[in-house]
Amino acid sequence: MALQIIDRDLVRKLLPMETCIGLMETAMLQTAAGTTCQPPRWIIDLPAGEGKCFGLMPGAMAEPEIFGAKLTAVYPQNGAKGFQSHQGTIVLFEAEIGAPVAIVHGGEVTAIRTAAASGLATRVLSNPGAGDLAILGCGEQAREHLVSMSCVRTLQRVRVWGRNPARAQAFARENASSSPVPIEVCASVEETVRDADLICTVSAAAEPILESAHVADGAHLNVVGSSVAAAAEIGNELVRRARFFVDYRPSALLQAGEFLAAKRAGMVDDAHILAEVGEVLAGSNPGRQNGEEVTIYKSLGIPAEDLVCANYLLQTAQARNLGDRIAF
């Protein structure tokens, strides 16, 4: 047997955002159809503190028939040091004899597929004419979400905010070529989101930075930065006000920090999670029902997203004779 090694540069070369958005559709439709096995991810907090943790995300899919797992160390402060916040690997297995067939750079796949999933949710849930984008956060996911939002909506305005003004200014300079319009750097969250109809929260905040009063009617939010039950980027009233959608309901009920905080406050119950994005895609549950509603997509990330990306990368690398292969 041979094991394909797909490093960070090869992931970036072979997985453009538009392609990844299509793969996310496959992953979410299969998730909604019940043809995947995706137990809630297993996470341990690391002794180093500062929100550092280690996670295991196993999963299996029926079509393509593959299984595997992502092992990820999450270091929220890495962005300020110039490193990815998610460090890890995806190990992909084939189904015939159960052999491992690929080891893929998990950090780069996570960076792209997380934003691609938000792009898909935005395509499905936002108003078709939405184009005033506000990004809260200025790290890796801010960059990737700028690209994904550009893929699914025609952007007329882009604003960004970050706790570190110098980093926000650097983000605007370094990503100018990825934006169809100049990137405006704002001094406050309220200024950034005022009248915006697309809002991406991609910060490392543990406590809410965005409240309902700041959000205009008709806006769509991708709430991405917090991925554990104890953290929340947006306030309880905003959760209550919005039509609330997720990638995978079982995971959200356990780990969607914003939803859980509003639930503890007695403002919502489990029925407030209206649907998975895949259910909206499949037509089994409605998404946005009018232009004035606020919609939220709460992103946690699911193994099916990683598996479809890893399989696509494996097949594409082999077809193009790219990457290293080692005997196993």
Rank of each mutant, 00 (worst) to 15 (best):
L155M: 08
R157K: 15
R157W: 00
V185S: 10
S178Q: 14
L136G: 03
L146Q: 09
Q169W: 00
E144V: 11
A142W: 01
A170C: 08
E140G: 00
G162Y: 06
R173L: 14
A142L: 04
P182D: 04
N175R: 00
H145V: 11
H145Y: 09
A142N: 03
Q156G: 15
C186L: 13
R159A: 14
G137T: 03
V158S: 01
M149T: 06
V189G: 01
S179F: 07
L136W: 07
S148V: 02
M149D: 03
L146D: 06
G139S: 03
N164V: 02
N164I: 10
Q141Y: 09
A187R: 13
C186H: 08
H145F: 03
E184F: 03
G137D: 09
F171V: 06
V189W: 04
V181G: 04
P182E: 10
S179N: 11
A168W: 06
S178T: 00
Q169C: 10
C138R: 02
T154N: 15
V158D: 01
A172C: 08
P180W: 09
S150E: 02
G162W: 09
A172P: 05
V185N: 10
E144F: 12
I183E: 07
R167E: 11
S150M: 08
P182L: 03
V185L: 05
N164T: 14
A176C: 05
C186M: 13
S150Q: 06
E174W: 01
S148Q: 02
E184K: 13
C138H: 12
G137L: 08
A172D: 01
L136R: 07
E144I: 00
S179I: 01
P180F: 04
A187L: 10
R159M: 05
V181Y: 10
S150K: 07
A168R: 08
A170Q: 15
V152T: 12
I183L: 08
S188P: 11
W161T: 02
G139D: 03
L146C: 08
S188Y: 05
M149R: 09
P182R: 09
R153G: 07
F171Q: 07
P165V: 07
F171P: 06
F171N: 05
S177P: 00
Q156V: 13
L146W: 02
C138T: 14
S179A: 14
P165M: 08
S188R: 02
Q141V: 04
A176H: 06
R159L: 01
R143H: 12
C151T: 07
G139W: 01
C138L: 01
S150D: 10
V152E: 08
P180C: 09
E144L: 12
A168K: 05
N164Q: 11
C186R: 14
H145Q: 11
